[in-house]
Design a protein around this nucleic acid. Sequence first.
RNA 1: GCCGAUGUAGCUCAGUUGGUCAGAGCAGCUGAUUUGUAAUCAGCAGGCCGGGGGUUCGAAUCCCUUCAUCGGCUCCA
Length: 650
Amino acid sequence: MVNITFPDQSVRKYEDGITGMDIAKSISNSLAREVLSISVNGEIRDLTRPIYEDAEIRLHKWDDDEAKHAFWHSSAHLMAEAIEALYPGTKFGIGPSIENGFYYDVDPGDDVVITDADLPKIEKKMKELAARKSRYTREEISKKNALSLFGKKGDEYKTELINDLEDGTISLYSHGNFTDLCRGPHLPDTSPIKAIKLLNVAGAYWRGDEKRKQLTRIYGITFPKQSLLEEFLERIEKAKQRDHRKIGKELELFTFSQKVGQGLPLWLPKGAQLRERLENFLKNVQKQHGYEPVITPHIGLKELYVTSGHYEKYGKDSFQPISTPQEGEEFLLKPMNCPHHCEIYKSKPHSYRELPVRMAEFGTVYRYEQSGELHGLTRVRGFTQDDAHIFCRPDQLKEEFIKVIDIIHHIFNALDFKDYTTQVSLRDKEDHSKYIGNDENWEKAEQAILEAVEEKGLKTNVEYGEAAFYGPKLDFMVRDAIGRKWQLGTIQVDYNLPERFDLEYIGADNQKHRPIMIHRAPFGSMERFVAVLIEHTGGKFPIWLTPDQVVVLPVSEKYHDYAEKVSNLLNNYDIRTLIDERSEKVGKKIRDNELKRIPYLLIVGEKEKESGTVSVRRQGKGDKGVMKLDDFATLISQEVDNQLKFIDTI
RNA sequence: GCCGAUGUAGCUCAGUUGGUCAGAGCAGCUGAUUUGUAAUCAGCAGGCCGGGGGUUCGAAUCCCUUCAUCGGCUCCA
């Protein structure tokens, strides 16, 4: 007998070799119908796998990630079976479950191309196969047998995977006519897979290595119910509606021109206004935190970047040097602001007393990103970093780090990114050879970051081996209004540049010392941040930030003079107000301005003119009734002030 | 950079198998309308069908090539 402990800590005895499915059945038939996988002592397993030891278990239904994992993993196998049936001789790479669904990397042979147009056919086959209720069966196999099995099939990807595995841990899963190397877990059978949608095909390098063969990756998602699939597709549709490229076009925020060049955004007046407001906001915050603005040119001598090391690492894959009539003279478009800032630091000697020095610049940089990687405003070739560099003493590192965290926290709050997490990137635990700087400093810096994060109570995960070669870092990921994650701000410690630029300060001991540099960018880049802000808000920006706050809609031409009076008064209060003077009906004016996401619409006609009032509509909320003009001015001023006050006091 | 898809007026899209196929709606312009809480009406103007080659009597439609965009992969100082 085995003792099975349930999540509520109750314990029941079962026969040796009982399966998760049997346990579910022993509780209720309805549970047995819904359960999809089981955790046994924290390890996710098949429901059909016998349990021979005392265990704490959890049974997973669809709502648990553990259930979805098994469900989608099984779906990947089902897709593979369908592909093998339709494209005999296909070789298989890997086919895991992912956050939303699953994929399988396949090699259908050199002269076979699978495209989007083939997906419905594969889907259909999958549905057919799923309906057969094939059981997923597990089999443990020796390495030798596994190699021979997949060797016979000619599946070199699988044999490569097997070669990397320890003998004795290799398992196969089979269902229907398909057998795959797989750790599991899987569903008991294919029958719960009711709704199937294959999403897209893409090329993916085998084992993520661009020097190796590119396989065909097919993404898909499945659900136990058709309605869940429909909800999922609706969510995708909603996300599309928030796409910053679409909204950027609609609201005339930015554009691109082939004549200017790929990945080089053109900020339109409304977008420029928005961005400038964000920049001014951050400039004020930074001023309060002791940053000093600096300004540096867009190009610098090639030697500058040779010194910084950037040329060696990125030079050949980047915008190439600009030559001049002067023989041998070459400039580079600046890919980073830091070398310039280092030179500013070096422009005079520094005492330990004046550190930290904090230099801030909205510095525009140019990087030759791979063409396939460009994407709207989130990945471009020319962009402006909200950059700053802090030069400090080792004993100031932690405090400075905390101050930067405060700024980033402040900014995220002000812009309504309430939900964010962080990642601490540290050195590889074993291999320190690829990092510059001495062990002692690294340890101090890593410790400082971990303590800072701890003190600030940040949600974080620590990743070893993710640090840059020049120092550890802390990245900020926000979750937007519809739950997607975006990486924004970053704080990085740098031992490399102070070394390369031979930066120093005179310490209390009258000796020369090396300062530490902190790079930090709360927004990351203005382009990327504005893109994320657009997707987060769906274009409905906070009122203090939005380009146009109020539009006055006169009901007819007769009230244009009153509309002008209203608009003048509001503009005098610094409320950004326009008048819609088109000869259109009110309904049309409302519709158009709602679509432009104007926060307040003021309808004015005979009644309003007579009584010195305005009829107020709030964006998305409809008619809010009539108000005295002065009262409205006060109301909206207060709303803006409150937002800004909130921002100031965070 | 790699794999796949797409590319028709400012925007969103129609254009069956190559033969009045260069269209629609919105936006724009002109005029009428003077409007009361999410689309007033009419007229006009707008495109060498991404660019360049080719096949054909004939190409938006087929082929090649190039550029750009989209979905991924790789990369991201």
